[in-house]
Nucleic acid binder design. Sequence first.
DNA 1: TCGACCATGTAACCGGTTACATGATTCG
DNA 2: CGAATCATGTAACCGGTTACATGGTCGA
Lengths: 183, 183
Amino acid sequence: MALEHAILVSLLERPGSGYELARRFERSIGRFWTATHQQIYRVLKRMEADGWVTAEEIGQEGRPDKRSFSVAPAGRSALVGWLRAPVQPEAVRHELAVKIRGAAFDDAAGRAALVAEVERYRATHEETLARYLAGERRDFPGPAAPDAAAALQHVVLRGGIAYERMVLAWLDDVLATLRTLDH
Amino acid sequence: MALEHAILVSLLERPGSGYELARRFERSIGRFWTATHQQIYRVLKRMEADGWVTAEEIGQEGRPDKRSFSVAPAGRSALVGWLRAPVQPEAVRHELAVKIRGAAFDDAAGRAALVAEVERYRATHEETLARYLAGERRDFPGPAAPDAAAALQHVVLRGGIAYERMVLAWLDDVLATLRTLDH
DNA sequence: TCGACCATGTAACCGGTTACATGATTCG
DNA sequence: CGAATCATGTAACCGGTTACATGGTCGA
C-alpha cells in the first residue's frame, strides 16, 4: 500500500490537481507505480481528510475550476517515516511468462498465434524504450544532474531503460525458442 | 485475473494437491506469479465446481490425506482459449523506485539509511540470482532441452536470470548515485 | 458538429492480503 | 518436548479495477 506515498513524492516534486496527477501516473510515475484517476481522487480525499495534503481552489477562465494539492507537514513526515521503513519485496505478476509455459500444452497453431502475439508485445516495449530515451535526451541532456531530485529521477529513468532493454533481449530469446519448437 | 491459468499450467506440468501447488508458487512459478495457499485453495474450489479440475483422494499413512488435482478437458480448453487472447500489459509496482525519488525530500541521515536498505535489498536479489543459476545447472545441464515443456520452462528461467542481473546492475547505479549526493 | 481534452467524481465488484484455526507427524 | 513440516481450510478487510456520470472548451 504505497499509492499515498507515490502521490506525496509526485506532489513534492510539483503540486498539482488530481487530474494532473493522473496524467503524471500515465507518464513518468506510471513506469513504477500505476494508478487510475478514480483511485487517485479517492486516495486524495482521504489524504486531505488526514491533513497530509492541502487543496487550493484555482478558478480558471474557459476551464473547469481545479483544486491544486500541496503536501502539508504531516504528509511530509508520513513520507519520511515510510522512506525509512524496510523495502517490501516486489510481488511479480508476469502474465506472458505464464502463457509461455502454457504454450507447451497448445498445438502448433496455438504456438504460431503466440509468436505473433509476442511480436506485437515486443513492439510495444520497443516504443516504450524509445519514449524513455527521448525523455532522457530532453530532461537530462547535460553530463551531470544539477540537483538531488533530478539526479534521482534520472537514475530511476535509467532503471526503466535497463528494464526495457532486458525485456527486448529476452523476448528475442523467447521468439527464437518458440520458433525452434515447430521449426 | 490469471491465477486460474497459472494453476492450470502448473497442474498440466504435474498434478498435485493445493499444498504442493502453494510450494511450487513459492519456488518456480512464484518467479512470475505469486499466490498464497489461502488464495490457491479458494480458486481450486471454484475451479473444481466449474469442472476445470478433478480431485483424487489419496490416503497417506502417517500423513493427513491429500487431494491431488488434475486438469479436466474443460480446464484445458479454458487454458487454450486464454493462451490465444491478447497479452495484457503488465501493471508495474516497484516500491523501491518510489522511495528513491522520495529520497530527494529526506535529509542526509535518511539517505544514508536508504543506502543501507538498498544494500540489504541488493543482497536478497544476489541470493535469488544464485538460486536461479543453481536451478538452471540442476534442471538444464545439457546443451538443448529434450521436449517443448522443458525448453519453455528454461526460457522463462533465463528471463528470471536476466531480470535479476539487470536489477543488480541498476542497484549498483542507484547506490553510486545516492552516494554522490552527500559525497 | 464531433471528437479530443479538461476536470472531478460515485458505486459495485472482485481479487489479494492478513489473521485465525485445526490437527497430525517427524526430527533434533 | 518443541519446532518444523504436512495438509486444508474460513473470515474479514481493503485496495484496485471497471463501469457509469457530468459538463464545459477547443480545434478540425
